[in-house]
């Protein structure tokens, strides 16, 4: 269990973590999601006592990290890959860590086996690939058989096999009743791994909820409709009280209607359909919607709408669904209101 209250960290005038409150509970994988520079790594460093908080505090199992008697036996952490001395062999690296916490030597061989590094255990770690470095870091995290595990961007640099391995490892560890806290900016990965989410943007906690609820609250499902009579169809569906958006000039997004209703309505009016498919909301969409205001560094690609100043939300995914609770409505976005007022090019 990790518990943060009002956790705040400044680096000079820059606020890296801003009064963060969150709780990470055992028995599930909690994803720590946020754009680059949002404060994920800083928060993890604060949890581990590497950096000192300016305000507030954070505890692990009810204690400050520095108060833990044998920290590796309570918390395992993988921070950036290769936080190791490259001249030392993998075995000796783990042996030093084990000794510092009074962990028996045989456990070193065990964790080397768990992560599949037995064959290179005696080699200096400077020759390791990024993936092997990650595995060594994970071996170090598992060394003390801790009940709390933290992984900072664990799949970075891993091949598909390695990603699958980490994903299954985290789920298994959570199923054993451990507390798993894993940061990532990769939403597809989080959607597959995390049961619960702590979402951070510009140092502030934006949401703390289950992954399913997060998606449900911040993104909506819709039906994608293609038709050679797009204009007529759009007007028709709008008159039925469904919200309709034009997606490119090829298809419509229809909100609040089931596929059968749309198909029947079209048939009643003799309109032809070329596609009628339900679209499930994605974590990505929900995330972009929520953190559109909170992205620290925009890509700055002109013309695609995502390179604009913070405050405007990225165009493509944000153009659908209602605005997130508590934020101002998006401006300049194509939308059809629910009361049937028409817009777009099909009127």
């Amino acid at each position: 269990m990790i518990h943060a209250r009002g956790l705040t960290k400044h680096y000079g005038p820059k606020v890296a973590v801003d009064h963060a409150d969150f709780t990470v509970r055992p028995g599930r994988v909690t994803g720590f999601l946020g754009p680059n520079g949002a404060g994920k790594s800083t928060t993890m460093r604060l949890i581990l006592g590497l950096d000192h908080a300016n305000e507030g505090d954070v505890t692990v199992n009810g204690k400050h990290y520095r108060q833990l008697g044998a920290p590796l036996c309570e918390v395992g952490a993988l921070l950036e890959a290769k936080a190791v001395h490259g001249g030392r062999s993998a075995y000796n690296h783990l042996l030093c860590l084990a000794k510092s916490n009074g962990i028996p030597r045989r456990r070193v061989d065990e964790v080397l086996g768990l992560v599949g590094l037995e064959k290179v255990a005696k080699k200096p770690s400077r020759g390791f690939s990024l993936g092997m470095g990650q595995r060594l870091g994970i071996a170090g995290a598992l060394l003390g058989d801790p009940g709390v595990l933290m992984f900072d961007e664990p799949v970075n640099g891993l091949d598909p096999e390695g990603i699958l391995w980490i994903r299954n490892l985290m789920k298994k560890l959570a199923a054993e009743g451990r507390t798993i806290f894993v940061s990532s900016h990769l939403m597809s990965e989080m959607a597959l791994t995390a049961d619960h989410l702590v979402v951070i943007g510009r140092g502030r906690i934006l949401a703390e909820t289950s992954t399913r609820e997060f998606i449900a609250a911040n993104a909506t499902s819709h039906v994608k409709v293609r038709s050679p009579q797009l204009g007529e169809l759009g007007s028709l569906l709008s008159r039925h009280g469904w919200r309709v958006e034009l997606e490119g000039d090829q298809s419509l997004r229809v909100f609040g209607a089931r596929t059968a209703e749309i198909g029947d309505t079209a048939a009643d009016h003799g309109l032809r359909l070329h596609e009628l498919s339900p679209v499930q909301p994605s974590l990505e969409e929900a995330f972009m919607r929520l953190t559109g205001d909170a992205v620290e560094y925009h890509a700055g690609i002109p013309g695609n709408g995502t390179g604009t100043a913070a405050g405007e939300r990225p165009e493509a995914p944000a153009a659908v669904g209602p605005p997130p609770p508590g934020s101002r409505p998006p401006e300049g976005m194509p939308s059809e209101s629910r009361d049937g007022q028409r817009g777009g090019d099909w009127s």
């Binding site: 309570e74 510092s100 768990l114 009940g147 391995w165 490892l169 298994k172």
Partner: peptide, 23 residues
């Protein structure tokens, strides 16, 4: 590499790493 990972989570251990361990 194996999916056999670890035993059940350790309960809070009263043990404390000694200065001798660190040395």
């Amino acid at each position: 590499m194996t999916t056999e990972t670890t035993t059940a989570p350790a309960p809070a251990r009263p043990r404390r790493a000694t200065f001798g361990n660190v040395v």
